[in-house]
Design a protein around this nucleic acid. Structure first.
Lengths: 207, 207
DNA sequence: CAAAAACTTGACCTTTTGGTATGTTTTTTC
DNA sequence: GAAAAAACATACCAAAAGGTCAAGTTTTTG
C-alpha cells in the first residue's frame, strides 16, 4: 500500500474554488484587471488565504492557464489516418464543437492569451502546437495523395476548423445577442455540429 | 463658405498619436493593464498632456473602440442581392480577408471586447449587428429559395465566414508561429483568400 | 502686437492593489 | 491528547496608477 491515499481534501477544495473564481475574473477583467481581492471574494475567502495557496497573482494565472491547456489538449480530439478523411473530420469537428459549447471559458482564456501575444506561454505554441499541426497536416496530405479528398491546403483547413468551432465559445455573447437568446440550448449544439460537419465535408469535396 | 476650414492641426496630430499608442497598449495589456503613462510614453508626450486631450482613460478607450467599429463597418464589405451568391460570397470573403491582414489591430480590440462580455459596447451588438445579420440572412435565404445555392442556414454561414477570416487577424501570433514565419507576406493574403473563397463556395454547393 | 485661446509640463494627491507580517484557529499525526 | 502542521484571518505597507493643479509656453486671432 502506498501511504499517500488522499489526505488532501481541504487544500484541493480551496484550490479549486480559487481557480474557478480566478478563471471568471481573468476572463471578465483581463490579467491586470483581475484583482486578488475580487478572486478572493468570488471564492468566498479572505485575500490572504488566496495568497496562502498561491504565492502571487502570476502563479494563479499560470495555474489557470495550465488547467486550460490541459483541457484543450484532452478535448481537441484526434485525427487518425485509419479513420479516413470523412470519419476523421466528422469526429474532429464534433469534438471541437462540444468543447466550445461545454467549456467556453477555457477557450476564452486561451484566445485572450494568444491575442495579447502569448506573453505567458512560450514553449506550448512554439513547439507543441507546431508539431501537432504538422503531423495532422501530413495525414491530410496522405489522403489527398491517395485521391481520397480534394487537394486543399491541410494547414488552412485545420485553421478553418479551429476558428469556426471556437467562435461559438469565444464570441458566445455576440452570437446569443444576434440570435436573441440568453443561453445556448442542446439544440444549438446539434444544429451547429450538423451545419459545420456538412459544410466542411462539402468544402473538402467529401459529399 | 463655411468658416470651419481646417484650423485643427496640432490637436489632430496629437489625438492620432495618442489613439495609435493606446490601441497598441490596450491590445497588449488589456483595458486595466494599459496605463496612461505607458500610452503617453508610447505617444512621446507627458502623461498630463494625454489627459489634456482625453479627460480620462475610459474616454481614450472609448475613442479607440469607436475608431475600431468605424473601420469594421467600412471594411465589412456588403452582400448584394443582385450580385448572386457566387459573386457576393467572393466579394465578401475577399473584403474580410483583406481587412484581417491589413488591420489586425482593429479586429483584436473588437475580439477582446466581445470575449470579455462587451462591457463597453451595448447598442452596437444589440441592435446594429442583429439587424445586419438578419438582413443579409434574408438575401441568402432568397437565393436558396430560388435554388441558386444549397439550403444551408445563412446565419451559421455568416458566422463561419466571420470566424474563419478574422482568425488570421486575432490569432496571427499563433499562425505565424505554426508556420515558422515572422510576418505575413503578400502571398499569404492571396493564398488565404483563394483557399477560403474556394472552400466556402464549395461548402455552399457553388462549385 | 497684444490679448486670448490652445497647448505643454512637472509636481502633487489619493486610491487601489499586490503582497507581507503576525497571530489565531483548526486539523492531522503520533 | 499534546505537539506539529495546515489553514484562516486581521492589520498593515509600499508601489503603482489615475487624475488634478497651477504655472509656463506657444499659437491664433482681431
Amino acid at each position: 500500500m502506498i501511504k499517500k491515499t488522499k489526505p488532501k481534501k481541504i487544500r484541493e477544495v480551496s484550490v479549486d474554488k480559487i481557480l474557478s473564481a480566478a478563471q471568471d475574473e481573468f476572463i471578465l477583467q483581463g490579467y491586470k484587471g483581475a484583482t486578488v481581492q475580487a478572486i478572493a471574494d468570488s471564492a468566498g475567502m479572505p485575500k490572504a488565504n488566496v495568497l496562502y495557496y498561491f504565492k502571487n497573482k502570476e502563479n494563479i494565472y499560470h495555474a489557470v492557464l495550465e488547467q486550460t491547456l490541459n483541457m484543450w489538449d484532452e478535448g481537441i480530439g484526434d485525427i487518425l489516418l485509419e479513420d479516413g478523411p470523412k470519419l476523421a473530420i466528422e469526429k474532429f469537428v464534433k469534438a471541437k464543437v462540444i468543447m466550445s459549447f461545454t467549456n467556453p471559458k477555457a477557450s476564452k482564456i486561451y484566445a485572450m492569451e494568444i491575442i495579447q501575444g502569448a506573453q505567458h506561454l512560450q514553449e506550448f505554441t512554439r513547439s507543441y502546437l507546431h508539431q501537432w499541426v504538422q503531423s495532422k497536416a501530413e495525414i491530410f496530405q496522405c489522403w489527398i495523395d491517395k485521391g481520397q479528398m480534394q487537394p486543399i491546403d491541410p494547414v488552412s483547413l485545420i485553421f478553418l476548423i479551429w476558428s469556426s468551432t471556437q467562435h461559438y465559445a469565444d464570441f458566445d455573447n455576440q452570437i446569443l445577442t444576434i440570435k436573441n437568446q440568453t443561453d445556448y440550448t442542446e439544440n444549438d449544439i446539434t444544429q451547429v455540429t450538423d451545419f459545420l460537419t456538412n459544410f466542411i465535408l462539402r468544402g473538402c469535396g467529401l459529399k
